[in-house]
Design a protein around this nucleic acid. Structure first.
Length: 705
DNA sequence: GTGCCTCGAGTTCC
DNA sequence: CTCGAGGCAC
């Protein structure tokens, strides 16, 4: 008996050691976190029961602890946004035109876009106090200890503002990357695919002494939160960062006035882009394009932001690397909404530094090479299994199939035939636009599973410990099946019931299963309990109703404020109520498609029952009604028109509604204020003829400040 | 009716 | 990141 236990303990200990090495030293996790935690929990449990068998060198008391702890989180005071992309000269022209609409003589800086990872360094009274990765832009990981090991990052600044957040890129030079991989080859450890991965892997080391051994570099190129401005322009600010001791990119340059240069701004930018592209191989580090920024900071502020990208900067990417390989097979996946997506299985090939073996094929038309109107896409030729195809990574990320080499097409290929039945549930498929769709609905297991994955995803319920893998695990679980949303929330109770009723040795309750143990089970259950309390917008989004994504879900939640109101309205819509449908339609961005989807979802039937059963297990948090006190615009009807520069239209609308104003789509005699940005057209004329007050964006912001 | 623009839904690799 | 399509402005 104790021999068997001892054997199991040794076995688990060995697996943990291997996993630790793979994770820490090679930055290539062999098992996922959940599995790791489960193994560790099991070993801890056995050690508690059999202290005599405990190994003095047990992994439960070593590296496991920091691994489980991971990195702390840092919330960025100012979000770290990504940049919009330009691929063609046309995109650059558009960018420049947009800027010149606001400032006729704007100058633009150009600099190489380093292919590494962004870092935000916070200095207080000159001392480096924290370093954070970009993360999702709002919250990053605390990598301060690792950042301190990088030579290019000063620990102490003299003459800096009291608070200064410096942003830049951590990267590994080609020289250091090759040396690192040579060392890895000698030691027989795993090498890195490219410098970017090596830099990212090194930054993610929990043991900063390992980061210190990897030679990392840092270029400063921007700033975040600070107590006083660094300069009036981009170039001045960068020069100031260099004075403070930061390494800045030597290739940074500013356009010249058109009259002096004798060339348009666009021509100057494109020339720089071409020059750097030619020098790319000799730079000694990886870059993936050029970043253009408006030099004058007041103009940057005037241009403002779209929802996720600034209007005053853009990344002009280099043409993507391309490579040829063979299309081995076309497989069909079924998505949450029942769309059948073809995926290309490829003979693995290296493109842009990573090995690609799959690529999306989008839909019917993409394979056929022609859209339904007969226009050529991808060169106009169809794809067949066995073809030699060109692969590139769109935006240097998503692998895609480009051209097909017809000369190399084997003689025995046949056009790809889309299935007439769903490969997962055998229901008939129907054509819907350029896609095929499975008609199985909730009866299709693929759709059911994908819906659950959507429900637990980060933007929806975000259940700690219950992600995609757990959906797969419990979907096929005989003792504790999870087939619809409510099953997740009844899981703890069903497990408790099982534990009470089962005979010894049955091991169907989670705490008694191998690989689980009580602590893993409890961790999962506490994640589920915490998720019961969910905000209305996340709940509506989590339902996975067609056409209702996170944005639309928020808009709806903001209108109805609590679950009962929303449910009653949605049910009324399904029963044909025109007035309730009108309440939805009055929301900006909601039209026939969304209303049709609501109607289908809330018709009497299994789908509505599943939603009501889920809601009964939850504590759905209402949204706050707009706080109208202290608001100068409460109760007013306002309309936005033209281009807003400080925020997007939907942000402006959200903010106005938060202050109790009603935002309408068009001007009428009921309109109180028209906020007109540049390029306002007929609405401004109409407002004038109706005697409606018209103000610009700045006046509006002042009014609500 | 036509042309933006934004959103939703799909996907890869680490 | 990309594509398609929904929704809105003109």
């Amino acid at each position: 008996m104790s021999e068997a236990v001892s054997l199991e303990m040794k076995e688990i200990a060995k697996r943990l050691e291997v996993a630790n090495l793979a994770y820490h030293r090679d930055d290539a996790p062999e098992i996922d976190d959940a599995e790791y935690d489960a193994l560790k929990a099991r070993l801890l449990e056995l050690e508690a029961q059999h202290p005599d068998l405990k190994d003095a060198d047990t992994p439960t008391e070593k590296v496991g602890a920091p691994l489980a702890a991971g990195f702390g989180k840092i919330t960025h005071k100012i979000p770290m946004l990504s940049l919009g992309n330009a691929f063609e000269e046309d995109d650059v022209s558009r960018f420049v035109a947009q800027i010149r609409a606001v400032s006729r003589d704007a100058m633009i800086t150009s600099e190489p876009k380093i292919d590494g990872l962004s870092l935000a360094l916070r200095y207080e009274n000159g001392a480096l106090v924290s370093a954070a990765t970009r993360g999702d832009g709002a919250v990053g990981e605390d990598v301060t200890a690792n950042a301190r090991t990088i030579n290019d990052i000063p620990q102490q600044l003299t003459g800096a503002p009291e608070v200064l957040e410096v942003r830049g890129e951590v990267f590994m030079s080609h020289e250091d990357f090759e040396a690192l991989n040579a060392r890895a080859a000698k030691n027989g450890t795993k090498s890195f695919a490219n410098p970017r991965n090596a830099a990212a892997g090194s930054m993610r080391q929990l043991d900063a002494s390992i980061t210190a051994e990897r030679k990392l570099s840092f270029f400063a190129y921007a700033w975040g939160d600070m107590s006083e401005p660094l300069g009036a322009t981009q170039s001045e600010s960068i020069a100031r960062l260099a004075e403070l001791g930061f390494r800045v990119n030597p290739l940074m340059r500013r356009t010249q006035p058109v009259a002096e240069a004798g060339k348009s701004l666009v021509a100057q930018l494109v020339e720089y882009h071409e020059e750097v592209a030619l020098a790319r191989a000799e730079l000694g580090y990886d870059i993936d394009g050029i970043v253009y920024k408006v030099d004058d900071i007041a103009t940057q502020i005037a241009l403002g932001f779209r929802s996720t990208t600034p209007r005053w900067a853009v990344a002009h990417k280099f043409a993507a690397e391309r490579a040829w390989t063979r299309l081995e097979a076309i497989e069909i996946q079924v998505g949450r909404t029942g769309v059948l997506s073809p995926v290309a299985r490829l003979t693995p090939i290296t493109v842009g530094g990573v090995v690609v073996s799959n690529a999306t094929l989008h839909n019917l038309d993409y394979i056929a090479g022609r859209d339904s109107a007969g226009n050529a896409i991808r060169g106009g030729n169809d794809l067949r299994v066995g073809d030699r195809v060109e692969i590139y990574r769109a935006g240097d990320v998503i692998p895609k199939v480009g051209a097909v080499d017809l000369d190399a097409r084997p003689g025995d290929t046949v056009p790809f035939v889309f299935p007439t039945a769903c490969p997962e549930c055998a229901s008939p498929t129907v054509r819907d636009g350029s896609s095929l769709r499975c008609t199985g609905g909730l009866a299709c297991p693929a759709q059911g599973k994908e819906r659950l994955k959507h429900l637990v995803s980060r933007e929806a319920f975000d259940i700690d410990g219950f992600g995609d893998t757990m959906v797969d695990t419990f979907w096929g679980d005989d003792a504790l099946p999870v087939h619809q949303p409510v099953d997740i929330f009844t899981l703890p109770a069903r497990d408790a019931q099982l534990a009470r009723s089962e005979a010894p040795g049955e091991n169907r309750a989670l705490a008694t299963r191998s690989g689980w143990g009580p602590s893993s089970a409890n961790k999962l259950f506490s994640g589920i309990e915490a998720a019961r309390s969910v905000h209305l917008d996340r709940m509506i989004f989590g339902l996975g109703i067609r056409h209702i994504g996170s944005t639309t879900a928020s808009l709806i939640a903001r209108t109805f404020l609590d679950w009962e109101c929303f449910l009653a309205a949605a049910v009324a819509v399904a029963e044909g109520s025109v007035s309730e449908a009108a309440r939805f339609r009055a929301i900006d961005g909601i039209g026939d498609a969304v209303i049709g989807a609501l109607r289908e979802t809330f018709m009497p039937g299994p789908e509505r029952e599943a939603i009501e059963a889920l809601a009964a297990e939850l504590d759905i948090q209402s949204l706050e009604a707009p706080s109208t006190k202290d608001s100068t615009v409460a109760g007013l009807t306002v309309v936005f028109t033209g281009t807003l520069t400080q925020m997007t239209r939907s942000e402006a609308k959200k903010q106005a509604e938060g202050l109790g104003a009603k935002v309408a789509g068009s001007v009428s005699k009921n309109t109180d204020i028209l906020i007109a940005g540049p390029g306002a057209g007929s609405k401004a004329d109409k407002a004038a003829s109706l005697g409606v007050k018209v103000i610009d964006e700045a006046a509006w912001l002042e009014m609500i400040a």
